[in-house]
Amino acid sequence: MGVVKAVCTSSIKGIQKTEQDAIELKSDWGIEGDAHGGPWHRQVSLLSYEQIEAFKARGADVGHGSFGENIIVEGFDLKSLPIGTRFACGDVVLELTQVGKQCHAHCAIYHQVGDCIMPREGVFCKVIEGGTIAPGDTIEIAR
């Protein structure tokens, strides 16, 4: 079982996201008000809290949302999970659709932070069942 450490959104793709008190997810869309919402496979991004903390330990000054991630989760090695893994968080069900991503050009995040762990550590999901997620919520792998 894991814990949601932060939830973040932005209205523009490719920039750092802003931490929110909670997010509302819609089935087959993503997060209301987030630039990545839409009927495609990368509706929501997750990043491991442990990986962010390891990056910070190398001297980086980053906060929640710095890598463009929507949900920061503690307790899972996200990049090691297989495609199709489902996460349950309250009423919300997410399905893992992609591990990592190709970054063709250094994004705004890379230029601001000096590196971006999202292409190698982040995972992407589609929303199967909608609902609300907030920091402190438990999240588990649904079998």
Rank of each mutant, 00 (worst) to 15 (best):
D34A: 10
E24H: 10
F55D: 09
S45H: 11
S27D: 02
A54S: 12
Q20F: 01
Q20G: 08
K26R: 13
A54R: 14
D34E: 12
S45E: 05
A22W: 12
T18F: 02
W29C: 04
I31S: 15
S10Q: 08
T9S: 13
K17L: 06
I31Q: 09
D21V: 10
H41W: 03
H36R: 04
E32R: 11
S11E: 15
D34I: 06
G14I: 01
H36L: 04
E50V: 00
E19Q: 15
D21I: 01
K26C: 12
Q20A: 11
S11I: 04
K56L: 06
V44P: 10
Q43V: 06
D34P: 05
P39D: 13
I15R: 15
K56R: 15
S10K: 03
S45V: 02
S11Q: 13
S45G: 10
E50C: 03
F55G: 05
E53T: 03
A54M: 11
G38Y: 09
L47H: 06
A35W: 01
E53R: 11
A57V: 00
K26T: 14
I31A: 14
W40C: 06
G14C: 02
Q16P: 09
R58T: 13
P39V: 03
P39L: 11
V7I: 10
K13D: 00
D28L: 07
Q16D: 05
S10M: 01
T18G: 12
L47R: 12
A54Q: 13
F55T: 13
A22V: 00
E19G: 11
W40A: 02
E53S: 04
D21R: 15
K13A: 01
I12W: 02
E53Y: 00
Q16K: 08
L46K: 14
Q43G: 07
Q16M: 01
E19T: 09
F55N: 08
G37V: 00
D28E: 09
D28R: 10
R42C: 10
S48T: 01
A35N: 07
G38M: 06
Q43C: 06
Q43D: 07
G38C: 14
W29F: 15
H36T: 00
A57T: 04
I23N: 04
K17N: 04
R58V: 00
K17G: 01
S11K: 12
S45R: 03
W40H: 15
F55A: 13
S45K: 07
K26M: 14
L25A: 12
E50K: 02
I23V: 15
G59V: 07
